[in-house]
Protein backbone atom coordinates (compact mmCIF):
# COMPACT_ATOMS: atom_id res chain seq x y z
CA UNK A 1 0.00 0.00 0.00
CA UNK A 2 2.82 2.33 0.89
CA UNK A 3 4.64 1.55 -2.34
CA UNK A 4 1.58 2.40 -4.37
CA UNK A 5 1.12 5.55 -2.35
CA UNK A 6 4.57 6.69 -3.34
CA UNK A 7 4.05 5.98 -7.01
CA UNK A 8 0.70 6.99 -8.50
CA UNK A 9 -0.98 4.81 -11.12
CA UNK A 10 -1.48 7.83 -13.30
CA UNK A 11 0.42 11.05 -13.25
CA UNK A 12 -0.04 14.09 -15.45
CA UNK A 13 2.66 16.74 -15.37
CA UNK A 14 2.12 20.09 -17.05
CA UNK A 15 0.04 18.54 -19.84
CA UNK A 16 -0.82 20.97 -22.62
CA UNK A 17 -3.21 20.29 -25.47
CA UNK A 18 -3.70 22.73 -28.33
CA UNK A 19 -6.07 22.19 -31.23
CA UNK A 20 -5.38 23.86 -34.55
CA UNK A 21 -2.39 26.02 -35.26
CA UNK A 22 -1.45 29.61 -35.92
CA UNK A 23 -4.06 32.23 -35.15
CA UNK A 24 -6.93 29.76 -34.91
CA UNK A 25 -5.11 27.64 -32.32
CA UNK A 26 -7.12 26.94 -29.18
CA UNK A 27 -5.34 25.78 -26.06
CA UNK A 28 -7.73 23.46 -24.28
CA UNK A 29 -5.46 22.21 -21.51
CA UNK A 30 -3.02 24.77 -20.14
CA UNK A 31 -0.53 22.75 -18.17
CA UNK A 32 -2.59 20.29 -16.14
CA UNK A 33 -1.10 18.43 -13.17
CA UNK A 34 -2.93 15.50 -11.66
CA UNK A 35 -2.28 12.13 -10.08
CA UNK A 36 -4.37 9.12 -9.13
CA UNK A 37 -3.14 6.56 -6.60
CA UNK A 38 -4.01 2.88 -6.67
CA UNK A 39 -7.45 2.09 -5.31
CA UNK A 40 -8.54 5.73 -5.31
CA UNK A 41 -11.17 7.55 -7.31
CA UNK A 42 -10.43 11.01 -8.59
CA UNK A 43 -13.49 13.07 -9.44
CA UNK A 44 -12.92 15.53 -12.25
CA UNK A 45 -15.46 18.34 -12.33
CA UNK A 46 -15.78 21.28 -14.63
CA UNK A 47 -18.31 22.97 -16.85
CA UNK A 48 -18.59 22.70 -20.61
CA UNK A 49 -15.39 23.92 -22.25
CA UNK A 50 -13.32 23.33 -19.13
CA UNK A 51 -11.31 20.62 -20.90
CA UNK A 52 -12.38 17.61 -18.86
CA UNK A 53 -13.24 15.46 -21.91
CA UNK A 54 -9.97 16.46 -23.58
CA UNK A 55 -8.15 15.43 -20.43
CA UNK A 56 -9.80 12.00 -20.60
CA UNK A 57 -8.91 11.65 -24.27
CA UNK A 58 -5.31 12.62 -23.59
CA UNK A 59 -5.08 9.98 -20.85
CA UNK A 60 -6.40 7.16 -23.07
CA UNK A 61 -4.30 8.34 -25.99
CA UNK A 62 -7.02 9.58 -28.35
CA UNK A 63 -5.54 13.08 -28.21
CA UNK A 64 -1.82 13.81 -28.36
CA UNK A 65 -0.57 16.40 -25.89
CA UNK A 66 1.69 19.19 -27.18
CA UNK A 67 3.65 19.31 -23.99
CA UNK A 68 4.12 17.76 -20.58
CA UNK A 69 4.15 14.10 -19.69
CA UNK A 70 1.57 11.45 -18.88
CA UNK A 71 2.93 8.46 -17.02
CA UNK A 72 1.42 5.15 -15.99
CA UNK A 73 3.09 3.47 -13.04
CA UNK A 74 6.07 5.75 -13.57
CA UNK A 75 6.49 5.19 -17.32
CA UNK A 76 5.99 8.12 -19.68
CA UNK A 77 3.39 7.26 -22.31
CA UNK A 78 4.20 10.18 -24.58
CA UNK A 79 7.69 8.80 -25.18
CA UNK A 80 6.62 5.20 -25.82
CA UNK A 81 7.00 3.47 -29.17
CA UNK A 82 3.87 2.47 -31.09
CA UNK A 83 3.96 -1.18 -30.00
CA UNK A 84 4.53 -0.32 -26.35
CA UNK A 85 1.71 2.18 -26.44
CA UNK A 86 -0.65 -0.42 -27.90
CA UNK A 87 -0.03 -2.79 -24.98
CA UNK A 88 -0.34 0.18 -22.64
CA UNK A 89 -3.69 1.00 -24.17
CA UNK A 90 -5.42 -1.95 -22.58
CA UNK A 91 -4.23 -0.76 -19.18
CA UNK A 92 -6.60 2.19 -19.36
CA UNK A 93 -10.23 1.61 -20.25
CA UNK A 94 -12.98 4.09 -20.73
CA UNK A 95 -16.71 3.77 -20.04
CA UNK A 96 -18.45 6.16 -22.44
CA UNK A 97 -21.36 8.43 -21.62
CA UNK A 98 -24.08 7.22 -23.97
CA UNK A 99 -25.18 3.66 -23.20
CA UNK A 100 -26.97 3.52 -26.55
CA UNK A 101 -24.05 4.07 -28.88
CA UNK A 102 -21.45 2.28 -26.79
CA UNK A 103 -22.62 -1.25 -27.60
CA UNK A 104 -22.59 -2.67 -31.12
CA UNK A 105 -26.25 -3.48 -31.86
CA UNK A 106 -25.28 -6.46 -34.01
CA UNK A 107 -23.21 -8.31 -31.41
CA UNK A 108 -24.53 -10.25 -28.44
CA UNK A 109 -23.45 -9.27 -24.93
CA UNK A 110 -21.29 -12.41 -24.85
CA UNK A 111 -19.53 -11.43 -28.08
CA UNK A 112 -18.98 -7.90 -26.80
CA UNK A 113 -17.42 -9.15 -23.57
CA UNK A 114 -15.40 -11.84 -25.38
CA UNK A 115 -13.87 -9.13 -27.51
CA UNK A 116 -12.73 -7.29 -24.39
CA UNK A 117 -11.20 -10.46 -22.96
CA UNK A 118 -9.58 -11.61 -26.20
CA UNK A 119 -9.59 -8.94 -28.93
CA UNK A 120 -8.03 -11.31 -31.46
CA UNK A 121 -10.50 -14.18 -31.54
CA UNK A 122 -13.41 -12.79 -29.56
CA UNK A 123 -15.04 -16.19 -29.24
CA UNK A 124 -17.69 -16.16 -26.49
CA UNK A 125 -17.63 -19.97 -26.17
CA UNK A 126 -13.95 -20.07 -25.23
CA UNK A 127 -14.41 -17.51 -22.51
CA UNK A 128 -17.85 -18.39 -21.18
CA UNK A 129 -16.50 -18.78 -17.65
CA UNK A 130 -15.00 -15.32 -17.58
CA UNK A 131 -18.08 -13.83 -19.22
CA UNK A 132 -20.27 -15.39 -16.54
CA UNK A 133 -17.91 -14.05 -13.90
CA UNK A 134 -18.03 -10.46 -15.18
CA UNK A 135 -21.78 -10.57 -15.70
CA UNK A 136 -22.25 -11.70 -12.12
CA UNK A 137 -19.91 -8.92 -11.01
CA UNK A 138 -22.33 -6.39 -12.46
CA UNK A 139 -25.33 -8.34 -11.12
CA UNK A 140 -26.64 -9.66 -14.41
CA UNK A 141 -27.74 -13.20 -15.14
CA UNK A 142 -25.19 -15.31 -17.12
CA UNK A 143 -27.79 -16.18 -19.74
CA UNK A 144 -28.01 -12.57 -20.92
CA UNK A 145 -24.78 -13.28 -22.83
CA UNK A 146 -26.93 -14.67 -25.62
CA UNK A 147 -28.96 -11.49 -25.98
CA UNK A 148 -28.53 -8.32 -28.03
CA UNK A 149 -28.14 -4.77 -26.65
CA UNK A 150 -31.61 -3.59 -27.74
CA UNK A 151 -33.17 -6.00 -25.25
CA UNK A 152 -31.70 -4.05 -22.33
CA UNK A 153 -32.60 -0.82 -20.59
CA UNK A 154 -30.26 2.15 -20.44
CA UNK A 155 -29.06 1.26 -16.95
CA UNK A 156 -28.42 -2.37 -17.90
CA UNK A 157 -26.51 -1.27 -20.99
CA UNK A 158 -24.38 1.02 -18.87
CA UNK A 159 -23.65 -1.89 -16.53
CA UNK A 160 -22.62 -4.01 -19.52
CA UNK A 161 -20.32 -1.21 -20.71
CA UNK A 162 -18.77 -1.21 -17.23
CA UNK A 163 -18.36 -5.00 -17.38
CA UNK A 164 -16.62 -4.66 -20.74
CA UNK A 165 -14.13 -2.21 -19.23
CA UNK A 166 -13.61 -4.45 -16.17
CA UNK A 167 -13.07 -7.57 -18.32
CA UNK A 168 -9.84 -6.07 -19.67
CA UNK A 169 -8.65 -5.88 -16.05
CA UNK A 170 -7.19 -2.42 -16.60
CA UNK A 171 -5.09 -0.50 -14.12
CA UNK A 172 -7.28 2.56 -14.52
CA UNK A 173 -10.89 3.08 -15.51
CA UNK A 174 -12.08 6.40 -16.86
CA UNK A 175 -15.79 6.99 -16.43
CA UNK A 176 -16.81 9.89 -18.67
CA UNK A 177 -20.19 11.28 -17.59
CA UNK A 178 -21.54 7.74 -17.24
CA UNK A 179 -24.70 8.76 -15.41
CA UNK A 180 -25.58 11.92 -17.35
CA UNK A 181 -27.87 10.16 -19.82
CA UNK A 182 -29.69 8.21 -17.13
CA UNK A 183 -32.80 8.75 -15.06
CA UNK A 184 -32.44 9.39 -11.36
CA UNK A 185 -33.39 5.88 -10.27
CA UNK A 186 -31.06 4.30 -12.85
CA UNK A 187 -28.30 6.69 -11.85
CA UNK A 188 -28.64 5.44 -8.28
CA UNK A 189 -28.32 1.86 -9.53
CA UNK A 190 -25.08 2.66 -11.42
CA UNK A 191 -23.60 4.72 -8.57
CA UNK A 192 -24.29 1.88 -6.13
CA UNK A 193 -22.64 -0.58 -8.49
CA UNK A 194 -19.59 1.67 -8.82
CA UNK A 195 -19.45 2.00 -5.04
CA UNK A 196 -19.52 -1.78 -4.57
CA UNK A 197 -16.96 -2.41 -7.31
CA UNK A 198 -14.60 0.12 -5.77
CA UNK A 199 -14.65 -1.89 -2.55
CA UNK A 200 -14.66 -5.39 -4.07
CA UNK A 201 -12.12 -4.88 -6.86
CA UNK A 202 -10.09 -2.03 -5.38
CA UNK A 203 -10.67 -0.01 -8.56
CA UNK A 204 -8.56 2.95 -9.55
CA UNK A 205 -10.79 5.37 -11.34
CA UNK A 206 -11.11 8.82 -12.86
CA UNK A 207 -14.75 9.86 -12.60
CA UNK A 208 -15.60 12.75 -14.88
CA UNK A 209 -18.88 14.55 -14.39
CA UNK A 210 -20.49 17.95 -14.47
CA UNK A 211 -22.77 16.91 -11.61
CA UNK A 212 -21.21 17.96 -8.33
CA UNK A 213 -23.62 15.87 -6.28
CA UNK A 214 -22.60 12.72 -8.15
CA UNK A 215 -18.87 13.45 -7.98
CA UNK A 216 -19.18 14.11 -4.27
CA UNK A 217 -20.84 10.74 -3.86
CA UNK A 218 -18.23 8.58 -5.60
CA UNK A 219 -14.87 10.32 -5.22
CA UNK A 220 -12.00 10.20 -2.75
CA UNK A 221 -10.29 13.19 -4.26
CA UNK A 222 -11.57 15.92 -6.50
CA UNK A 223 -10.02 18.05 -9.21
CA UNK A 224 -11.71 21.22 -10.43
CA UNK A 225 -11.03 22.29 -14.01
CA UNK A 226 -11.75 25.80 -15.24
CA UNK A 227 -10.86 26.96 -18.77
CA UNK A 228 -8.21 24.25 -19.11
CA UNK A 229 -6.54 24.86 -15.78
CA UNK A 230 -6.73 22.95 -12.53
CA UNK A 231 -7.96 25.54 -10.03
CA UNK A 232 -8.20 23.18 -7.10
CA UNK A 233 -7.36 19.59 -6.22
CA UNK A 234 -7.62 17.78 -2.94
CA UNK A 235 -9.59 15.55 -0.62
CA UNK A 236 -13.25 15.63 -1.57
CA UNK A 237 -14.59 16.65 1.84
CA UNK A 238 -11.94 19.32 2.24
CA UNK A 239 -12.68 20.88 -1.13
CA UNK A 240 -16.46 20.75 -0.75
CA UNK A 241 -16.33 21.87 2.83
CA UNK A 242 -13.84 24.66 2.44
CA UNK A 243 -13.17 25.60 -1.17
CA UNK A 244 -10.05 27.73 -1.61
CA UNK A 245 -10.56 29.03 -5.14
CA UNK A 246 -13.40 31.50 -5.82
CA UNK A 247 -14.50 29.48 -8.86
CA UNK A 248 -14.85 26.33 -6.78
CA UNK A 249 -16.86 28.34 -4.27
CA UNK A 250 -19.15 29.60 -7.02
CA UNK A 251 -19.53 26.11 -8.47
CA UNK A 252 -20.50 24.57 -5.15
CA UNK A 253 -22.87 27.42 -4.31
CA UNK A 254 -24.63 26.84 -7.64
CA UNK A 255 -25.77 23.34 -6.74
CA UNK A 256 -29.51 23.46 -6.06
CA UNK A 257 -30.28 22.20 -2.60
CA UNK A 258 -26.72 22.79 -1.48
CA UNK A 259 -25.98 24.91 1.58
CA UNK A 260 -24.79 27.98 -0.33
CA UNK A 261 -27.50 27.99 -2.97
CA UNK A 262 -29.41 31.26 -3.29
CA UNK A 263 -31.53 32.48 -6.18
CA UNK A 264 -33.13 35.42 -4.43
CA UNK A 265 -36.16 36.02 -2.29
CA UNK A 266 -39.41 34.28 -3.02
CA UNK A 267 -42.40 36.34 -4.07
CA UNK A 268 -44.22 37.60 -1.02
CA UNK A 269 -47.44 35.71 -0.30
CA UNK A 270 -46.66 33.23 -3.01
CA UNK A 271 -49.13 30.74 -1.67
CA UNK A 272 -52.53 32.29 -1.08
Amino acid sequence: MNASQSQPVLELKDVKVTFGSGRSAATVLKGVNASIHAGKTLGIVGESGSGKSTMAKAIVGLVKPNGGLISFSGRDVTKMSGAERRTMRRAVQMVPQDPYSSLNPRRTIGQTLAEAIDPLRANPKEHSEKITHWLSTIRLDPEVAERYPHEFSGGQRQRIAIARALAVQPKLIIADEITSALDLSVQAEILNLIGRLRKELDLTMAFISHDLDVVHHVSDEILVLFHGEVVEQGDVDAVYGNPQHPYTRRLIDSVPGGPGFDIGERRVAAVP
Binding site: R90, P96, S102, R107, E115, A116, P119, A122, A161, R164
Partner: peptide, 26 residues
Protein backbone atom coordinates in the same frame (compact mmCIF):
# COMPACT_ATOMS: atom_id res chain seq x y z
CA UNK B 1 -17.63 7.80 -34.82
CA UNK B 2 -19.80 5.58 -32.62
CA UNK B 3 -18.57 4.81 -29.17
CA UNK B 4 -18.36 1.07 -29.66
CA UNK B 5 -15.75 1.54 -32.38
CA UNK B 6 -13.55 3.82 -30.30
CA UNK B 7 -13.96 1.45 -27.35
CA UNK B 8 -12.90 -1.47 -29.54
CA UNK B 9 -9.73 0.46 -30.39
CA UNK B 10 -9.04 0.93 -26.69
CA UNK B 11 -9.57 -2.80 -26.18
CA UNK B 12 -6.78 -3.38 -28.68
CA UNK B 13 -8.95 -4.88 -31.44
CA UNK B 14 -7.07 -4.96 -34.75
CA UNK B 15 -8.17 -2.94 -37.78
CA UNK B 16 -9.49 -5.82 -39.92
CA UNK B 17 -11.47 -7.10 -36.94
CA UNK B 18 -12.99 -3.68 -36.38
CA UNK B 19 -14.15 -3.77 -40.00
CA UNK B 20 -15.63 -7.25 -39.88
CA UNK B 21 -17.13 -7.09 -36.39
CA UNK B 22 -18.24 -3.49 -36.06
CA UNK B 23 -18.35 -1.62 -39.37
CA UNK B 24 -19.75 -4.11 -41.88
CA UNK B 25 -22.58 -5.64 -39.80
CA UNK B 26 -23.89 -2.16 -39.10
Amino acid sequence: QRNYVSTARLLGVSGPHIITRHLLPN
